[in-house]
Amino acid sequence: MVTETGKNCLAGIRDCALGAVALLGLSLAASPATAQTQLRMANWLPPTHPLVQDVMLPYAEKVREATDGRVTIQLVGAPLGPPPAHYDFAVNGVADITYGVHGYTPGRFKTTVLAEVPFLGDSAEAISVGYWRTYEKMLAQAGEHDDVKVLAVFTHGPGHVFTKGRDLSSMEGVQGAKLRVGGGIAGDVASALGAVPVLAPSSQSYEMLAGGVADGILFPYESVTFFKLDGILDTGLVVPGGLYNTSFFVVMNKARWDALSDEDKKAIDGVSGEALARLAGQAWDAADAQGRAAMEGKVEFLDASQEQIDTISTALEPVVAAKLQEAAAAGIDAQAALDMLKAETAAASK
């Protein structure tokens, strides 16, 4: 989705500088006469991104409404640092609230990889709701987030393969292809399918594809159009349930959380957790739908054949097994957690 290094991420987005000013204008800070507590949310995306427009800003408004204006959230206009640093910004109090990608700090979070495995589903909303329920009941006990208050975990929509100049009607079209990935399980998936993963920030995707450094990319629909790749890529292989997802967090500094009144904590909890995971998932689904619609006539979509699905499933079995082992190392029953995640995702899909 977005970059592993803030410098490259922000350099690749032309409106980010103007966005710093615009974002301040969009911040939902109440006047000093009504606000008792103002929380600063660190931000590293441009104001046009769906995660800002359709998740973080609406969430800030929901917090304001739930607390009758006693607690407000202001999105910081300029990035405080690179995306991988944002979790620790919340830990250390550099910002009161932060959001980010678990995979941007490899090896730090072991249980969250379960939400990124292939074939979980076609709806970010359903996966995100199932993910939160599983996190709350099973994953939290690993203690990986004990240094913050977790407001939500969620995923973006399912990722697929997009290429230029390659025949994706068979898996031979993927083999040997240089696919840009953002790290984490996406790189493992690319390797398992016989592709050559090329690790690079999302913001460099356009120049890599245009310059022939990469033959394709693993992305959800939304990101293809957001990074304006629909004019370069010509074919997409759509795999039911997706080849991977990306796990996100929204967390708060513990001291700032503890300083809130019990009334405000209860109010914020009421619009966080599953409610925030659902909000984020709905936003991703809407963005994916818009992204796919925008690609019609530019990108040929090929639904994976049963033969391709069987080949992909077999190839990715070792990847899933490795992720289960990784999660189990955190002290949880990884298989039971994955089973719960799948069951809750299925339930949320109905």
Rank of each mutant, 00 (worst) to 15 (best):
E326S: 10
G159P: 01
W44K: 01
Q282V: 08
V2E: 10
Q308P: 09
K254H: 02
Q53I: 03
F219Q: 12
T98E: 08
V181L: 11
L57Q: 07
G143A: 08
G165H: 10
S202Y: 04
G159H: 14
P58K: 13
K265E: 03
L57D: 03
S247G: 05
I185R: 09
L338S: 02
K110R: 15
G176P: 05
G184V: 06
V251P: 00
A283W: 12
A294W: 11
A30P: 02
P220G: 12
A321V: 02
E296G: 05
S170P: 03
R40S: 05
T3P: 05
A315C: 07
G130S: 06
Q308G: 11
F89Y: 14
A283M: 11
G77Q: 03
A78C: 01
H102S: 05
A287T: 08
R64M: 01
D339G: 10
D54Q: 15
S170D: 13
S305E: 07
V148D: 04
H102V: 08
I232F: 04
S27N: 08
Y244C: 07
S31N: 11
P32R: 09
L243W: 07
G69C: 06
P79E: 02
A336E: 08
A210F: 01
G241M: 06
A322D: 13
I332N: 06
E300F: 02
E61K: 15
K298E: 02
L139S: 11
D68R: 14
S272A: 15
D147F: 03
V101Y: 09
D285L: 10
S349I: 00
Y135L: 08
A95H: 02
Y87G: 03
L237S: 09
P83D: 04
G291H: 09
S349P: 00
E207R: 15
D188Y: 11
D234R: 08
K265D: 00
G173D: 04
P201M: 00
